[in-house]
Design a binder for these strands. Structure first.
Length: 356
DNA sequence: CAGACGTGGTG
DNA sequence: TCACCAAGTCT
């Protein structure tokens, strides 16, 4: 009977991580709530950007119960500026589920964790391993990158089949280690050494067996099949104030961009002119272009991952008309605004107007 | 399952 | 300026 050799990753990378890994607040705890919170915040988000939000959330909501009892608006407000707002929605939803259906106690297995909204393969493995030493490899962008290079694999990392292959391999390797250390080390390697550009191969604890390094392929790998292309869109919005300075806003729906946040009444268009868009927008609210006064137009451009938005905001004065004539969802002023979440493009606008 | 979903940093 | 990317999930 031959004994299976310990993988190089376990022999070299985990000691490297324990020696040189960054001190991050969620690494010092085994509290599943804090770990879950950090993992949701860090989805598609850099540590630098997420860190402040993590501390803010933990201070405001120190445990799952306090989060579950908060209002949704409060959660969105705290999430404001972080992006991917469905995460905030699901965070709040999951907190309620944990309180109501799990008696406030976190589920401990991969499958149970994955049943929570906002918790997919990666996050379920992360929470299970970090909080409970459950032996499941967490596969994120970092892990796909270093494994692709280490194995010299040309399989596209944005293909779900590739992810499954890596999952099987690392689920095997993780058996020989602390699941917590294994997964932290795995992601840290991708974040610090095996970076997308200019990887630090001469400091890499895997270089002796890395196919990409041995064959000078680190610039070619990993391969991505999908190409990103930017779509140009026009955003036309109304800043409608009444004679007391309050303005109309509405809550964005879950299935659209900025879902859960508040925004000015607006219209997305692809190929229309600003004039036509404005006309259509006014019509939506039974406003006649002849009856209104446009005081000012604010224009900016806003870059998203797959979209470039040209934004036009028309400041409109309603003269002597009772505002409840109009079917806007909500009217707010400077004070009420402080408790609601707004997309970046509108907080930029509010700053410009001196309202923020 | 391809496409949608944000914001900020980098070369 | 701009493509690419960051501790992914949902539909």
């Amino acid at each position: 009977m031959k004994k299976k050799p310990t993988p190089l990753f376990v022999r070299n990378v985990i000691p490297w991580y324990l020696r040189e890994g960054r001190d991050l607040p969620w690494r010092a705890t085994r509290d599943p709530y804090a770990i879950w919170l950090s993992e949701i915040i860090l989805q598609q988000t850099r540590v630098q950007q997420g860190l402040g939000y993590f501390l803010k959330f933990l201070e405001t909501f120190p445990n799952v119960s306090s989060l579950a009892h908060a209002s949704e608006d409060q959660v969105f407000r705290l999430w404001q500026g972080l992006g991917y707002y469905s995460r905030a929605k699901n965070l709040h939803k999951a907190a309620k589920i944990i309180c109501d259906q799990w008696n406030g106690e976190f589920p401990k297995t991969f499958d149970e964790l994955k049943s929570l909204p906002g918790v997919g393969d990666y996050t379920a493995a992360a929470i299970a391993s970090f909080a409970f030493e459950f032996p499941k490899a967490s596969i994120d962008g970092n892990v796909l990158r270093w494994t692709s290079r280490f194995l010299g694999s040309h399989a596209p990392i944005d293909d779900p089949k590739t992810k499954k292959t890596i999952q099987l391999l690392l689920d095997d390797w993780i058996q020989d280690a602390s699941a917590h250390s294994f997964n932290q080390a795995s992601m840290e390697l991708g974040a610090i050494i095996c970076t997308p550009k200019d990887p630090q191969c001469h400091h890499c604890p895997l270089s002796e067996e890395c196919v990409a390094f041995q064959n000078s392929l680190t610039n070619e790998l990993p391969i991505k099949a999908k190409k990103t292309k930017v779509k140009h869109q026009l955003v036309t919005a109304l800043f409608i104030q009444d004679n007391q300075g309050n303005w109309a806003v509405s809550k964005r729906q879950d299935n659209e961009i900025w879902g859960g946040l508040y925004a000015l009444p607006l219209l997305f268009t692809d190929d229309t002119s600003v004039d036509i868009a404005l006309e259509n927008l006014l019509q939506q609210f039974d406003l006649n272009a002849k009856d209104i006064v446009i005081k000012h137009t604010w224009t900016t451009s806003h870059l998203l991952t797959h979209r470039k938005l040209q934004v036009h905001i028309f400041s409109i004065l309603l003269e002597d008309m009772p505002r409840n004539t109009y079917k806007f969802e909500k009217w707010i002023g400077v004070e009420a605004m402080k408790n609601l979440g707004f997309p970046k493009v509108f907080s930029d606008f509010y700053k410009h107007k001196g309202l923020l």
